[in-house]
């Protein structure tokens, strides 16, 4: 809980650039901005795993799933960037937030995890990729559900809904694959 607090504090203060900005009133709020910034960061992080899985997984189901995920992420991130640019908000959470690596939703995929995945072979690669992707998609769902509950900008909320639904299906497929 504290970690989340700390993370939010950093995101909110740093993400807005100017500390004193009161709650935005023009159709979007801080949760919308946080969703887009965190979402873009999560896509960037998750794509490292998906890109490797798409090329190297032994099981064709995993490769197909990685391709599907990457296609969806590409489309989603295009929309997300457009909104942030339109609102004149930074695309990325402040780089200082990386001080919180390992503390929750952002940066939960550490460089060492990617390195372990790169080093894994065969069935071990598949198992590691699924495990990392599952954990990562759960974090993505936490962020999209945050937007559904607290966002204000209807198109962003509806994007979050469809992202939650898509990730939920992908999680189901992966849980069946690892079971």
């Amino acid at each position: 809980m504290w970690r989340l607090f700390a993370l939010l504090a950093v995101l909110v203060v740093a993400g807005c650039g100017e500390p004193a900005a009161p709650v935005a009133t023009t159709g979007f709020n801080d949760v919308d901005v946080m969703f887009l910034q965190m979402g873009l960061e999560q896509i960037k992080e998750g794509d490292q795993v998906a890109a490797l899985a798409e090329r190297r997984a032994t099981a064709s189901e995993i490769r197909a799933l990685a391709t599907e995920l990457r296609d969806q992420w590409r489309a989603e991130s295009g929309i997300m960037q457009r909104w942030l640019l339109g609102w004149r908000r930074p695309l990325a959470p402040d780089p200082d937030a990386s001080a919180h690596a390992g503390h929750g939703d952002l940066h939960s995929l550490r460089p060492s995890d990617i390195a372990e995945l790169r080093a894994a072979r065969g069935a071990d690669f598949d198992r590691t990729a699924l495990s990392l992707l599952l954990g990562h998609l759960h974090n993505c769902v936490a962020t999209t559900r945050m937007e559904s509950a607290g966002g204000a900008y209807p198109p962003a909320k509806s994007l979050a809904e469809s992202m939650t639904a898509a990730r939920k299906q992908q999680i189901r497929k992966m849980l069946v694959l690892v079971a």
Partner: peptide, 27 residues
Amino acid sequence: LPLLTVAAVVTSFFVAVAPASAHGYIS
């Protein structure tokens, strides 16, 4: 002021959203 802003945002965030206390499980 920034602290209050943060507090307000964080509070409204928690009112609206289940805490994302995320961590791990057996798959």
